[in-house]
Design a protein around this nucleic acid. Structure first.
Lengths: 199, 199
DNA sequence: CCTACCGATCGGTAGG
DNA sequence: CCTACCGATCGGTAGG
């Protein structure tokens, strides 16, 4: 998280504060003081507290979308393993990579969209839905080809996304597991959940 | 959610507001107005906003603990199926039942403990850890007996609990799936995740 | 359970 | 990026 601009430094500090304490419980002065400046000085760089939240959430959404696009591309060019399991594995890995690369922003994206105004909230929920639809689609594809055995693809997608989105609640960069190792396990869990025989 | 007392009605209304908007973003006046009384009138029934949060979180924790105790008892008396899979199935069902019976309180328990003061926060985190340890223990037990095949029991427990704790984010009492049906699927997902062969 | 009110803190502006 | 300051809202109290 190298800060290339003052504006970006503000967003990085705010991400972590918003993730740890919530948007409403974080004051503009909290953000400023974490940067060793006075509260009002922040307004030399941003126009409002909500604009900071929006910048964080919008960028996080864009990261997830770009990573999913790249994952789809990687799966397609991998000719020997372009099945649903491979495609879903790339998606899971991409999600874990984005989350762990900026756990503050990811946590804010997952939990703090409620604090956005009506229009921005609707926008971000639509983007989140479209993103999650990628998971649903590849699961249904796998069910269609018989790769996966699952009577409720929608619920399976929700369960997998809940597992992934729980990351900001426990992941720490200095923790026991590296992002890659976490991704390995989550891919394993995901495929087990979908490939196991139904009782 | 039949209200047996004014105090309980306050907690029920507050649960839903805290779950939907967060503790910090919910004012005492918001809670009062949802009950058609004036803000200060609330203090005839409660001593502080944080006391309301604590009452909700403490009761939710007690519900999870009691349900897990009952689940352990039920598993033990079920002689033909006292294996780890059966014990874990009871735990998962109990968790889903508690969550869906009061999704407001459950959501607050899962997400709003950060707003508690230092001591209460430490208390509730210790109880949450002890509760989650029940899941970890039965998973490790199943790995020990060979029922489950899992190289990282801790991460598996975290993944399963994340799946379960995602419920307040999407469950609606009027939704497509009944609590029992959700529990059926989550038990299925949990056992698949743990019983599938490792690659 | 109400009205009237309190000090503290909030997001944000003015002017430099 | 600072100091001085603003109106609004916060949790909560007094007194009935």
């Amino acid at each position: 998280m190298v800060e290339v601009s003052r504006r970006r430094a503000i967003e990085d500090v705010a991400s972590e504060l918003f993730r740890a304490n919530g948007y409403a419980a974080t004051s503009v002065r909290d953000i400023a003081h974490a940067l060793d400046i006075q509260g009002p000085s922040l307004y030399a760089h941003v126009t409002s507290k909500e604009d900071v939240l929006w910048a964080i959430v919008d960028r996080a959404a864009a990261s997830f979308e770009a990573a999913a696009d790249a994952a789809a591309g990687a799966a397609e060019s991998d000719r020997n393993r372009a099945d649903a399991a491979a495609r879903l594995s790339f998606l899971v890995r991409a999600h874990v990579a984005v989350m762990t690369s900026d756990i503050g922003a990811a946590g804010v994206f997952v939990h703090e969209w409620r604090a956005l105004g009506r229009d921005r909230q609707a926008t971000i929920l639509a983007r989140r839905d479209a993103y999650e639809e990628r998971f649903r689609a590849v699961i249904e594809e796998g069910v269609g080809t018989g790769e996966f055995v699952m009577t409720d693809s929608n619920l399976a997608a929700t369960a997998i996304l809940s597992m992934l989105n729980g990351l900001p609640g426990w992941y720490r960069p200095t923790g026991r597991l590296s992002p890659d190792r976490i991704a390995d396990h989550f891919v394993d869990f995901t495929l087990r959940l979908l490939q196991g025989a139904n009782p």
